[in-house]
């Protein structure tokens, strides 16, 4: 459901542009940040709000890698394995996270706490290897650092 509060945010985004459609991607990001992902229902509501055919919204949602059609974990872990990270062990970092959490690329833990994605360059090349958990960057990673980060993110009762 698109709440009234979210609709008010849409209204303030739309005011930034002379053409209403320009607000589409910021609105999709805002919706995802509030609701976790972009459901058919949200997409239909956004299409109506911007007076666009739903297909135009689907086209955009499926084009951009950050926009998601399905829920992810509470902590969405995105490990970069592109060139600068690769050289300093990005793939090993990915494997470490995968092994520790028992999930593969694109999967979510059964408790919904963690999900894992291999991503393209995050723009943290001088602090490689790097990953993002939701929007937070973690830099200069080592296996030990990864273990500490994951432990800190786990809920206290699960430790």
């Amino acid at each position: 459901m698109i709440s009234d509060r979210l609709l008010a945010e849409f209204d303030s985004i739309v005011r930034n542009y002379p053409v209403r459609r320009s607000a589409l991607i910021p609105i999709l990001l805002t919706t995802q940040e509030h609701l976790g992902y972009l459901s058919d229902e949200s997409i239909a509501a956004i299409a109506r709000y911007l007076n666009l055919p739903a297909i135009d919204v689907y086209e955009v949602v499926t084009f951009y890698s950050m926009l998601r059609r399905h829920p992810v974990g509470k902590h969405h872990i995105q490990v970069c394995t592109n060139i600068s990270c690769l050289l300093l062990g990005g793939e090993e970092i990915f494997e470490r996270v995968s092994k520790r959490l028992g999930i593969k690329e694109g999967e979510t833990t059964s408790d919904g706490q963690f999900s894992l994605a291999e991503v393209e360059c995050l723009g943290a090349c001088c602090n490689a290897p790097a990953m993002q958990v939701n929007y937070t960057y973690y830099n200069d990673l080592t296996a030990e650092k990864v273990d500490q980060i994951l432990q800190a993110l786990q809920k206290p009762e699960e430790r």
Binding site: N16, R21, A23, L29, V60, F63, Y64, S65, M66, L67
Partner: peptide, 26 residues
């Protein structure tokens, strides 16, 4: 006005960026 993208290398190309800024795929 600040405008956030949503993850697409191609939007670094200036006309791809403009398409994206108009609310379309890049």
């Amino acid at each position: 006005y600040l405008h956030r993208g949503a993850g697409a290398y191609i939007c670094g190309e200036e006309t791809g960026l403009l398409e994206s800024l108009e609310g379309k795929k890049g």
